[in-house]
Design a protein around this nucleic acid. Structure first.
Length: 271
DNA sequence: ATGGTTGTCATACAA
């Protein structure tokens, strides 16, 4: 059975609902995980998503900021989002696929939105960066607590860290830039490795090939300068590593009218 | 070294 999961930081699901529908109609992933929905619970556009085949939807939102959602063509049971860093921010949600998901039944999918961390990579001067480091530390403890995780699982999301040298347009020039500082990249790689997660994109496309999933809004010509970063990730548990068939970065969506600054990342598995 | 853009919500704030 072919199984596909997509992660996409949509930067307002209401503003870009037509783009979400366009993507879903074309790619038809089994599961779509969204971040930065920026949408209160009662305003989530359920009908627009159900009508294109996504009958199972869970959303965890707050007004104006953050927000994560999972849409599925199959049934699932939803878990409450974890409270991280003693905040009720809507930055995590998880599901376990139901019996109608065929060979994917029983797989748990975690959707994370890691704090961006502000501009200054100094936790003592910048509370947002301190929050980001605390969040990553909590993710590490959470992963360790489940290890050796034995049920098949997938972790996706906007992790707001580009961990490898070729996950950014210039490793040297970004060493002091939040998202690629050594304290962040080491934290992310450590928590991934300890829990045994397989980085799907790099499993199939090793370095030194560049991979980007985000381009700043501030570039004059994002495509020409191509100063991207790989901030969006799909990780699979070790037992699923061998099922990975492809990972597609939908770069073309960055060229759509009024785009998100992130593009969808879709992993295909053969279960 | 600096500012560059976008979205939400209404004036800064987060990214």
């Amino acid at each position: 059975m072919r199984f596909t999961v997509t992660t996409w930081n949509i930067n307002s699901v209401r503003l870009r609902i037509a783009q979400v529908r366009r993507f879903l109609r074309k790619v038809q992933p089994d599961v779509l995980c969204l971040q930065e929905t920026k949408c209160p619970e009662d305003l989530f556009p359920l009908k627009h998503l159900r009508s294109v085949g996504y009958r199972s939807i869970v959303h965890c939102g707050q007004k104006g900021y953050n927000g994560v959602a999972i849409l599925s063509r199959h049934s699932f049971s939803a878990e409450h989002g974890m409270e991280l860093c003693e905040r009720r921010d809507a930055r995590h949600i998880a599901i376990t696929l139901g019996d109608d998901a065929g060979a994917a039944a029983g797989i748990t999918i975690h959707n994370f939105y890691v704090p961006a961390g502000g501009d200054t990579p100094e936790p003592d001067l910048n509370p947002k960066f301190a929050h980001k480091l605390s969040f990553l530390a909590e993710m590490r403890r959470w992963g360790d607590s489940k290890a050796p995780a034995k049920a098949p699982a997938i972790l996706v999301g906007d992790l707001n860290v580009a961990p490898l040298e070729n996950d950014v347009w210039s490793h040297k020039q970004l060493l002091d830039v939040v998202s690629h500082t050594p304290v962040e990249t080491e934290a992310l790689e450590t928590l991934r490795g300890e829990a045994g997660w397989v980085d799907a994109a790099r499993h199939l496309t090793p370095e030194p090939e560049k991979i980007y999933t985000w381009w700043s809004y501030r570039a004059q010509d994002w495509a020409a300068s191509d100063r991207g970063r790989r901030l969006d990730h799909v990780w699979v548990s070790p037992d699923l590593g061998g099922t990975l068939k492809s990972v597609d970065v939908a770069r073309e969506t960055r060229g759509w009218t009024r785009p998100s600054d992130h593009v969808p990342v879709t992993a295909v598995m053969e279960l």
